[in-house]
Amino acid sequence: MELDETDLAIVRELQGDGRLTYETLAQRVGLSRPAARTRVQRLRESGTVRVVAIVHPAVRALSASAHLAIDTHGAADQVARQVAALPQAPFVTLTSGRRAIMAELRTAGFGELERTVERVRALPGVRAVDSLVATRHVKDPYLLTDEPTVSALDDVDEHILAELEEDGRLPFAELAGRVDLSAGATRSRTLRLLEGGVAKVVALVRPDVLGMGYLCGFSLRVTGRTAEVAGTVAGFERVTFLSTCLGHAELVGTITAESFAAVRTTLEAMRALDAVCGVESWLHLELVKERYDLGPHTA
């Protein structure tokens, strides 16, 4: 689907807040309310954009995560799809570089994380797996990095979250009918969940749709205080994801850019940091899976 500048402006607004009212959205992009509504519907019906709620990992008891670099015997495509079939793997890509596949795991504790890594190692076609255990998500385009301030959720809250995970723009009146509450009570509960950091409603869209089709993963070796370097790297405009981690590197992240030149410029800026003593990078060639509406699993 071909997007014009107005479509792109709408997508960017929904990436920041997927539940923006059509009236507010229209004002921000310079359209009438009906025109804004029509454009959003067209973007969603074409599959260009999905607007969904992403629940904070802590709420789903997903307290452990890791980044895997996977080498294969022979072709990598089928192996990547086997990894993507695991419910603990929200993100899987085919990549260039030393390893053919990169994946992210999120699990309910380190015991399950260990078992899931062992499952990946045992998959047919897997030659080797390098793991980086994440300690803190510093920057994430989809997840709230701060801990949620709402802790006790009842069955109605969970039902609301489940509905919004499928359609983040459900009107309060329709959502109320599905969870068997009044529209006012549903609105109050939903806002409590969103404002309390339990979930975030965002537009999921491929970076190439926004003219940012060059995705480069990287890992950094750091001397001194990792937190200080992480703060600097997270401030780079084209760094869209960053985690601190344990393993053969202290930081792992993603650059999303409009060209190879922009990727190179960002990598060079990292290499120029005094505290960075090593940089490894790889290109994401194909996004196999990106789905963050994950619940607790059994490994």
Rank of each mutant, 00 (worst) to 15 (best):
T95C: 10
D7S: 11
T38Y: 08
L287P: 00
L161K: 07
R221I: 00
E166G: 06
T190W: 04
H297K: 07
S259Q: 02
A173Y: 05
T240I: 13
M102I: 11
E195M: 00
F241Q: 14
V133Q: 05
R169Q: 10
R60E: 14
D71T: 11
P57T: 12
A53C: 05
L246A: 09
A176H: 10
V202P: 02
S281G: 10
L210R: 03
T240H: 13
V40E: 02
K289S: 10
H67N: 11
L204K: 12
R28N: 10
L273M: 08
E250C: 04
R271Q: 12
S46Q: 06
A26Y: 01
E228S: 12
G97D: 09
H284V: 14
A230H: 10
S151A: 14
C245A: 15
E195V: 04
G109K: 09
P124V: 02
A257D: 02
D140R: 10
G109A: 11
L43H: 03
T190I: 02
T254W: 04
G177K: 13
A84M: 09
E166V: 14
D274M: 00
L43C: 01
D167K: 09
Q88L: 04
H248A: 09
L68G: 12
F260G: 04
G74M: 12
P141W: 11
A80S: 06
G211Q: 01
E237G: 12
V279N: 01
R39A: 07
P87N: 09
V83N: 03
A261R: 03
G235L: 02
V156N: 05
S151T: 15
R238L: 11
P124N: 08
L3H: 03
V279D: 03
E195N: 15
T72E: 04
L143W: 08
V129C: 07
P87A: 10
P34D: 04
T244W: 10
L215R: 07
R187C: 04
A230N: 07
P141H: 11
T226A: 15
C216V: 07
A152E: 15
A36L: 03
P296T: 11
